Amino acid sequence: MPTVPAAGTPAALAAALLDTASLTRIMPGRVRVAPVEPLRSEQRASAQELLDRIGGALGLPGPEVVGDAEELTAVELAVSRRLALRAPGAVADGEAERAARSALAAFPGPAVLVPALDGTPLRCWAAGPEDAPAVIVVSACGMPVGLTVTWLAALSTRYRVLTWESRGLFAPDDGTGLGPPPDPSLTAQSDDVLAVLDGFGIAHAHALGLCGGAVIALAAAARSDRVTSLSLWHGDYELGDEAPKTPHQHDIAALLALVACGRPQAASMHRLMSRPTALSALRPDLAHYLIHPYATPELLHRYGLLNGALMTADCRQLLDVPQPALVVTSDQDATAHPAGSAFVARHLPRAELRRLPTGDHLTAFDAGGELLTLARQFLDSVTVPDRKGT
């Protein structure tokens, strides 16, 4: 396991700045951050100078260090907590720049831009042996790649692992912004699976879908036999009256419908969701990922369209796909109702259901030991060599 740098060091700050880059790239102004403990004016100036040096070496806008957290928005608080900024100690010549280079080289590495079938640029990653069977990780809509890094790292020891970030919701590294709004339809989002495979020269792959990504993976399998097998983890499915939904699913569906109506509605909701209390519902170690699609009014509007398309797609029309499938859920998932996964598993022709007694919705993204064992066992049963190439 790689050594975790001590909090507040240039190495830790470089890693944290990259980890929060999806937010700092997209915010309209400089993100303000507060230190863990109050700093004297000279300490604050030193901390600012260090952040600016590291940010410059990373090609990122350096956050602005402020005295306390009282005036910060939810996004700024999430970034502050991830940075865990302290009074900097002595920094050797070139240490900040070396830390930035190491952070840039760390797993999963820089994004590769791949064009979608409709030309939308997709931020993508690939890891693992190029001649190994391929696995494409289909994450939840609007989530930065960092949320799935544990899956990518664990599976890339034996598989060629690919993933990407949702179309139109992430700014590229060059500072050009989000670009024009993309097609938010489920068809376009499922076509992105095939575009990513094309971008890395992969003919066939197993699709591992998480949360709403399970819907995209199902739709891609229905459209193409290039998806040779599926694993669907804590899926968020629309199944009509066939399965109940959690209060969270009902609440999110109503929110998405509202902000998808137009930018004025998204702006009004964004003002509410920018309050610090918005963080109280988010797991602290993941908050800087989970808050991304709510970071600006434009992002929130686009998220309403994209994730709304997933949450309203009738998945019953996708349940005749013939590929072998593993469906995983948990009795403790209060986000996506486990009954939805049970229904999907019963109706897919070649599915097996694993309903675990413990683990909430976000546990699926943690990729803990039991989940990895399940995934590897199933992958071993459905993958064969020489999946690469066309």
Score class of each variant (00 low, 15 high):
263 R>S: 09
61 P>L: 10
59 G>H: 09
186 L>H: 02
275 R>L: 15
190 S>Y: 00
22 S>T: 14
93 D>V: 14
64 E>I: 07
78 A>H: 07
281 A>K: 09
364 A>T: 11
158 R>Y: 04
335 T>E: 13
281 A>R: 15
306 L>V: 15
373 T>P: 00
8 G>F: 01
12 A>T: 06
53 R>H: 05
364 A>S: 14
246 T>H: 05
232 L>P: 01
25 R>A: 09
80 S>D: 01
335 T>P: 00
218 L>P: 02
8 G>P: 09
175 G>N: 04
219 A>P: 02
198 D>T: 04
152 L>Q: 13
191 D>K: 06
155 L>C: 04
191 D>Y: 03
344 V>L: 07
150 T>S: 13
128 G>D: 08
381 S>T: 15
328 V>S: 02
184 P>C: 10
316 R>D: 10
385 P>Y: 02
370 E>Y: 08
161 V>W: 10
94 G>V: 03
353 L>G: 06
281 A>C: 04
240 G>L: 04
86 R>F: 00
185 S>M: 01
48 Q>D: 10
61 P>I: 09
113 L>R: 14
349 P>M: 02
91 V>P: 09
299 L>G: 02
62 G>V: 01
247 P>H: 10
131 D>E: 15
293 P>T: 06
239 L>H: 09
134 A>H: 05
99 A>V: 01
